[in-house]
Every structure is written in C-alpha cells, then in structure tokens.
Design a protein around this nucleic acid. Sequence first.
DNA 1: TTCTTTTCGTATCGAGTCGAAACCAATCAC
DNA 2: GTGATTGGTTTCGACTCGATACGAAAAGAA
Lengths: 196, 196
Amino acid sequence: MSTQDTEISGKESLSRLLDRLGRMARGLQYCHGLNPAQWDSLRFVAQANRFSRTPGALAAFLGTTKGTASQTLNALEKKGYLSRVPDPDDKRVRHIELTEKGAELLAEDPLNCLDQAIGRLPDDMVDTMKEGLERLCINMQSRCGGQDMGICTTCGHFQGPTDAGNMRCGYKQADLSCEDAKRFCINFEAAQTGDC
Amino acid sequence: MSTQDTEISGKESLSRLLDRLGRMARGLQYCHGLNPAQWDSLRFVAQANRFSRTPGALAAFLGTTKGTASQTLNALEKKGYLSRVPDPDDKRVRHIELTEKGAELLAEDPLNCLDQAIGRLPDDMVDTMKEGLERLCINMQSRCGGQDMGICTTCGHFQGPTDAGNMRCGYKQADLSCEDAKRFCINFEAAQTGDC
DNA sequence: TTCTTTTCGTATCGAGTCGAAACCAATCAC
DNA sequence: GTGATTGGTTTCGACTCGATACGAAAAGAA
C-alpha cells in the first residue's frame, strides 16, 4: 500500500485543481433545461465561422462522433435554439444557425461566472496561466489527438485583405466577411513563419 | 519563434483554454471500460479518509445527486473495482472500499499523462497557476456552492496527537489513523488562525 | 461518360449517465 | 412516543455515447 504522499504541504496538486474546476464548471451547466454537451454546442455555433458551423465540425470540436453531434443538434433544434439550413452549393452539407432564442439563452451562459471570477485575478497572473495552459494543451494534444481551433486572422490559410477589401481563406478559396475572420475555424492551422 | 501577435483578438481567453483542457481531459477518461464519472469516483475512494468513503460524500464531492452517485457506485461494484460494506454503528451508512482490482486499475489512470505534461512546466509557472486556480475555485465555489475537501491535518476540526499518539477529529469525535489523517475529508473546514 | 470511392449527415440500437423525485429505513429531536 | 431528519436506493424520462448501418451527394478514376 503506497500512499502517494508527495509533499502534501496543504498545497493542492495542479492536476487536482484542474479536475476540480472542470467538474465545477460541468455541474454549472445543468441549467435552463440544457446539459453540458448542449451548452458546448451552442457556444460553438456562436463562435464558429460559417465554414465551421456544420455537424461534422462540431463533432470534431467536441471530440465526439458525428452521430452523437447530430443527436445533440436534434435536441437543440427541437428546443428552438438553432436551425439547420441546407448549403446551396454542396447539398450534403447543412449549416447550423443560431436562432434569436438561442442567442438570448447564450447571454445566460452559466460559464459566464467563470469569466467574472477570472476578471478578479491580476492581469499578469492571468497571462502566466494562459501561457501554462496553452503549453499543457499543446502537450496533451500531441499525445492524445483532438482538434484545435483558431481564429482566421492567425491562420496559415489566411490571406490578407483583397483589392475588394475582403479577407480571404486560401484553404476554402472563399472570401471571408470581417466578422467571420474573427471567428473560430475548424480548418485552423498555425501560421508559417513569414508566410502571407 | 513566431512573433506573438496577441495584440489582435487572436488572444485566446483563459476560460476557453480551461474549457478546452477540460474537454480534453474528459475525453481521455473513456478508457478501460470506464467513463469520467467512474474514474472520478474511483480516485475519490482512493483518496478519501474513512469518514468520507460513503455514497453521500461522493455525491457532494462530485457535485451530483446521491441517486446518481449510487448508480455510479453500482456500476463500479458490478465491475469489481470496489465494494460497499455496512457500518456497524450506523446502519444507514455503507462504507466504500477499493478492491485490489480497483487499486490496480487506478495505476493506469488516464489523467496521469496530465501530470506528466505538468511536469514539463517550470516550477514557478506551476506555482502561479496553482495560486490562480485555487483562487478561481474558491471564487466559483462561493457563488455556486459545491463541496471542497481538504486534508485532516490542515482542517479546523483536527486535534493534534492524543496521549495515545493518535490523531483525532473534533467533528466526528473519533480517532484517526495516521494514514487517514493524510487523506481528504468531506467535513473539511479551513483551520482558524493559530489553531493546531 | 460511367464506374468506384470518399465525404457529410442522419437514423437506429443498446448500454449507461444524468437530475428529479419518490421511497425506505435508521436515527435524532422533542 | 411521535415527527422530522438523514443516508441510500430505486425508478423515471431525457439524453449522451460509441458503433453501425444507411443514404445522398460529390470527387476521382476508368
């Protein structure tokens, strides 16, 4: 029987703290008749650009299967928080759009209180935590897969404003609205050095 | 090193990073035929002292209901990772005990790789992150309830070694084994100043 | 052009989780 | 003793989850 008493000096281990905070956040998300997966999906739809507001991208983001994602979308659509509209170009694709009701609900995102709590921390502490968490994410990701997402303007596929003043995505070969360029994209790839 | 272009809105928010890491950790815990809740429960049983190895304490710790906790325990017991034994004094209570099989499984805790990733971070960064997360936890807890847990030796109810050399808990009015005093307790309360 | 193959999304199945609520038995308070 | 409280379990309906099968559209190869 080996108790892992690694210098228990009252300081809680970092992994335990992350675990605890995660569970806390999870528990908060059983409210307004939704569950954590549904809140996650709703948030995703609100933050993703138009290329990424699809069931497949949602599944990749959540780290689940397309089947599961489809069911979660069914639940949310039934409740009136979003709708799925067919893509005119590719008839296999359906785009997910947040309804007004969905946007209203999102204003009461139970995780907002996490942001409030973060706002009470000193800025330099937040920066250090960001730096550390980012490195943890990258390290974990490399060893367990999973999809990362980023904003178009920092993406390797991003091509600056065109003559017409539009942003452009080199991967999708399509123009981006100013708004979309600031949203998350499932095709995100870290930019190369000095490229574009 | 690419230029850290954080001046644009490409700066990832801390809450998003926490969210991402949480989902990643969650995804890792679907393995060995268990799910995240079951891993959490197994970890809890391994770390809690004897007063806290009960269904009720587990529910409080997980931030769920007693019913749900009971079901999770059913699943784990059926798989042979733990057993529930009646309390001789209070016949309502059942104590949860980790089986040998459970202890073996715990050695392959999927979250161990998180600890490994943390080990790659500089010590001072880890300390700052601990400090920040601890404050976040406390802040969140105060506004959304939830149970905290701590180690007996740092608890307000803790009464130092008795004449017999045993630790003692003033809340339960019971002696503590040396081992139990180092474990987590559901009745934890931060110690008063200068006490113990 | 016709085929195959791949991709995208949905439907279905079974096991199991979730919270809510009802429930029971033991214990406590008066 | 009576009544309230506490600790656990059970049941219920909605939902998640992965796996699988499925269908339609698109892309690729012949």
